[in-house]
Amino acid sequence: MPIVSARGLSRSFRVSEKDPGLAGTVRHFLKRRVRTVVAVRDLEFTIEPGEMVGFLGPNGAGKTTTLKMLSGLLHPSGGRVEVAGHVPARREAAFLRRITLVMGQKQQLIWDLPPLDSLRVNAAVYGLDDREAARRISELAEMLELGEELHRPVRKLSLGQRMKAELMAALLHRPQVLFLDEPTLGLDVNAQAAMRRFLADYNRRHGATVLLTSHYMADITALCPRVLLIHAGSLFHDGSLEQLTQRLAPRREVRLELADTLPDSAFSGYGELESCSGRDVRLLVDRDRLTTVVGRLLADLPVLDLEVRDPPIEDIIGRLFRQGSIEQP
């Protein structure tokens, strides 16, 4: 039984448009030009309990809109969605107790008070008695390596500490389904890594299902065996990250370190020359020709070192989206 299922899930918004300048403003005031923008179109996917799924797509692809529909904040314009056996938009208490939504750009902690005060409020809202709340707070604090920070006003905490405290507030009721929208946004590398360790740990301990968006591909590669990629509101890929790489990047990157510098023309016939700076050369080679090409390279050129790797997933996806459209292979 999937814990999350979306069938033909769609959402459109009506937005009004305005030309710049005074004339545009007057026209805008007198007669609104309203356009319907489709944010999410016909999404179909299911997630099994305990899965950790990465949710990828460029800005404006519809990731946040989808997460908001899954957590009941937005009513879908079409299709059906079910999470933990509930229709999210009804926002039944039993549903809300089983989910959480963490938004990297928004915060729920009371700014002027220590996180513990906000946690006390949440404990009451979720109907936890003081003993149970204290137990969960100390468990989460230990997992997140928070200590006396919990006694300091939120406004005095660093971004990393604040985000950890936000997670505590979002997880105090021990939800089974976690929707995380950019939980590592703006954090430094160490804080990001700590956050990833925590999420993996939480998933293991409580068997929680996680759907995660992130701009940092390292979050996805470290946590999510499965990714959903959406583009312009539609689902483009549902599978492992490797499959996505195969599908999007049928070529691999060959890095060479040469004994001498060679002119660019020396590399024609092997593959596409990606970069050539001094003795370091990068080539993109079709997967099916890879072994032949590598053999020829070693035989023909003064190679000191050779490395074959997949181009970074950021680059692949980034290039894809810069081109503006995805061609279905």
Binding site: K68, S71, G72, L73, R91, A93, A94, L96, R97, I99, T100, L101, M103, K106, Q108, N122, V125, Y126
Partner: peptide, 10 residues
């Protein structure tokens, strides 16, 4: 958008 957090509470 702070209303989101209110709507997420039971």
């Amino acid at each position: 958008g702070g209303l989101d957090f209110v709507l997420l509470k039971p």
